[in-house]
Amino acid sequence: MSLIDIQSKAVMAIGPCRIASLSLVALVHQDADVTGHEPSERALQLSTTRITTAYRMITNDLIVQLAEQDYEMPPELEARRLACVEALTPLHEAVEGHDGAVIARISAIPNVAELCLHSLEPLTSRFLDDLVAQLTKVQRDREAKRSGEMLEAVKNAEAVGRNIRLIAFNASIEAARIGDQGKGFAVIATEIRTLADRTQSLLNNIATFLRA
């Protein structure tokens, strides 16, 4: 899993909590006689699931997945994450129970509409935007570094290949000086040189691909 994969999962898990929070506010103020009970139950279930999923991702899963990729968010981005957690926690605590009193608990949150509209929504949007930008940059830097390291490895292998060719060439000369007794050795030296040439060609192709 790359950092790009993680950012995609984070956006998919956290992003919907913005709509979910607004939906919960609407459910608090809706007129049950007009909208009916069944649609409200479906909307409530979807919203609570989204809030729970987002909370789990932003408080735990995201940190664990990033750690598995040897990455830790910089202080500013971590501060934005914690701000999102703080804004999301009251809603998460309200939807945790399944006793039919979710709407009542949401209604009891002080300034719940203000919390969802002017706190959670902008904080979450800013965090996700910054997270995507940061992880995209880091992933690109890692890929560039990896390509550079691979090119360096190819260069080293090319140097080894040249040395092998030189050794094989010298061995062929020595085998020729020995005469008939060196024929077998000359065949081996020729095979080594041929293999070195093939390896050199392969390394050249790899280097060309990496530089493209």
Score class of each variant (00 low, 15 high):
2 S>Y: 01
3 L>S: 08
4 I>N: 07
6 I>D: 03
8 S>R: 01
15 G>R: 14
16 P>R: 15
17 C>A: 12
19 I>H: 13
19 I>L: 15
20 A>T: 12
21 S>L: 10
23 S>N: 02
23 S>C: 00
25 V>H: 03
26 A>R: 07
30 Q>L: 03
34 V>I: 14
38 E>R: 10
40 S>H: 04
43 A>H: 05
46 L>Y: 09
46 L>S: 13
47 S>H: 12
48 T>M: 15
52 T>Q: 13
52 T>P: 09
52 T>L: 11
56 R>T: 09
56 R>P: 00
58 I>D: 08
61 D>M: 10
62 L>C: 01
63 I>T: 05
63 I>Q: 03
67 A>W: 00
68 E>G: 15
69 Q>L: 04
69 Q>V: 01
70 D>G: 03
70 D>K: 11
71 Y>C: 10
72 E>G: 06
75 P>A: 01
76 E>N: 08
77 L>G: 09
81 R>I: 14
82 L>Y: 13
83 A>P: 06
84 C>V: 15
91 L>T: 08
92 H>V: 04
93 E>F: 00
93 E>D: 02
100 G>A: 01
100 G>L: 00
100 G>S: 01
102 V>D: 01
104 A>T: 11
104 A>K: 11
109 I>K: 14
110 P>S: 14
111 N>M: 12
111 N>K: 15
112 V>T: 15
113 A>L: 14
114 E>A: 06
115 L>C: 08
118 H>E: 02
119 S>W: 03
121 E>H: 04
126 R>T: 13
128 L>G: 13
145 K>T: 13
145 K>Q: 12
148 G>H: 11
148 G>T: 15
148 G>V: 13
150 M>K: 06
157 A>P: 02
157 A>N: 04
160 V>H: 00
162 R>V: 00
167 I>Y: 04
170 N>M: 07
170 N>K: 07
170 N>R: 07
174 E>H: 14
177 R>Q: 09
179 G>Q: 09
179 G>C: 11
183 K>G: 01
183 K>I: 05
184 G>P: 08
192 I>P: 00
193 R>G: 02
193 R>S: 03
198 R>D: 10
200 Q>S: 15
201 S>V: 02
203 L>W: 06
205 N>M: 07
207 A>L: 01
207 A>H: 05
211 R>Y: 01
